[in-house]
Amino acid sequence: MRDYAKEVLEGSVRAAARLISWLEDEDPRALEHMERLYAHTGRAYVMGITGSPGAGKSTLTDKVTFALRKKGLTVGIVAVDPSSPFTGGAVLGDRVRMSRLTMDPGVFMRSMATRGFLGGLAKATGEVVKVLDALGKDVILIETVGVGQDEVDVIRLADTTCLVLVPGLGDTIQSMKAGVMEIADVFVINKADRPGADQLYAEVTTRVEQDASIRERAWTPPVMRTVAVDDEGIGDLVEAVEAHRKFLEESGALEEKRRRRAREETLQLIHGELYRRIRDRLTANGELDALVEAIVQRRESPYRAMQHVVARWMRE
């Protein structure tokens, strides 16, 4: 078997691409390689780009990447698109707007389908970020699915989350669900040359100021204006992200963020592995079917079955 971990560390695009496929497929072969890569992760800075559909996230990702490349930084991009719940298929179209990055050896881009995972990301997105990190990318951009406002999982992975809003798409503060405004470390008003941009800018700014006066926050999210199509405001946006990074690093918040991430990730991995093992065993020996039958007939309750299975597993 090829030593993918070693090849990734040596910069092999092919090895990284294959390892990512395994992660997406939840192929157990990935584990061993990830185990060896882990020590080499944690170097990259992770930026999340999220917002409504049509907000211009791909174009923004393209322009930000270009700006970062000009600064000499290498970039990994993970662009997530939804899978169809009916067919399981997906059209991943983010490369269209990022065509000019394809031949840049300093950029690795991967399109991912959500495969039924909610929250705006694919299940394996976090792992893919690690592979790109180990591959040596300085900055990793995660572009989320743009389907609504519940897709806020990106904050679990990103050091800086940019929330992209545009005038004329119903992106008004009133329409924001509780909690969405809070995910932003940086606000981006894209398509800022459109009618309604000034109003949206004013609304967001006012809201940010109100929040700041109500409760003490160490970081006040800046509100940036861009016209991504015309490459306007991108430099300022990158600077705002850098300022946030500096803040995180100097205040110790970055370390705290990453500690929290490690904790969640570890618990999640344990959860996933326990689940898989128990499920596999229950399925293999037919016990699950018997339990389900009993539960359906109300001879057994799912609660007691759960306690029973877990208790027995713990004993072993």
Binding site: T59, V91, G93, V96, S99, R100, D230
Partner: peptide, 10 residues
Amino acid sequence: FGEYRPKEFV
């Protein structure tokens, strides 16, 4: 003027 990349929908 810059170059254009379109928004493609499938």
